[in-house]
Simulated scan of single mutants.
Amino acid sequence: MKEVIRTEAAPAPVGPYNQAIAATGKMIFLAGQISLNPKTGEIVGVGDITQQTKQVMTNLEAVLAAAGATWENVVKTTVFLTDLPNFAAMNQVYAQYFNEATAPARACVEVPRLPKDVLVEIECIAMID
């Protein structure tokens, strides 16, 4: 279902992601998640990139589970940060959810603003049978 693509002819990944993933099956496109607590509707970890990233990953995991998927099914993520110096702290949390050898492909970009003025938003694509 998921095959890691690697080549020495392109730069090696500098984090928990791979250069490319070949995938077969049914595609699931997860909307970007921010650090909203689903029960209260309040932002978790105001001003704290670590707490916000943990909540984002919790929210993504809930949507994956509802689709019958796990982190192993994720083939691509996009991370949006309002301040690129938060990359290392976000990446430390993000890395806890993926095996580095089979991690999905990933893009990370800085944006001027995110909904509700959060620090991070992450979206992903997963494949299931």
Rank of each mutant, 00 (worst) to 15 (best):
A101D: 14
A95F: 10
V120Y: 07
Q51V: 01
T102Q: 10
N99L: 10
A88S: 13
Y97W: 09
E61N: 15
V93E: 07
E110W: 12
T77L: 05
N73A: 03
E72F: 08
A66N: 12
T58C: 01
F98T: 04
T82P: 11
A67Q: 05
A66V: 00
A62G: 05
F87M: 12
A66G: 08
Y94W: 14
M57N: 04
L114H: 09
A69Y: 01
V74L: 05
N86L: 11
P112H: 09
T82G: 10
A105T: 13
A66H: 09
Q52S: 05
L119A: 03
V74F: 03
E121F: 05
A62W: 05
L81A: 09
A101M: 11
L119N: 04
Y97E: 01
P85D: 06
C124T: 05
A66Y: 02
V120K: 08
Y94E: 02
M90K: 07
D83A: 13
E123D: 13
V75L: 04
A88W: 11
W71H: 00
D83E: 13
L64E: 01
C108S: 14
P112G: 10
Q55T: 06
N59I: 03
L84R: 14
A105S: 15
M57D: 02
N91W: 13
V56P: 03
L119R: 10
V63T: 06
Q55P: 03
T70L: 00
N73M: 02
D117E: 15
L81K: 12
D83F: 15
A65Y: 04
P115A: 08
V118C: 13
N99D: 15
Y97N: 03
E123R: 15
E72T: 15
M90P: 04
V79N: 06
A88M: 13
Q51F: 00
L60M: 15
V111Q: 06
R113S: 14
Q51H: 05
E110D: 05
N91M: 13
A103Q: 06
V109C: 12
K54H: 12
V79S: 06
C124L: 02
W71N: 04
T78K: 12
V120M: 08
W71E: 01
Q96G: 13
T102M: 11
D117V: 11
K76P: 00
N86Y: 14
R106M: 06
A89E: 15
N99Q: 15
T70G: 01
A107P: 02
V56D: 00
M57I: 08
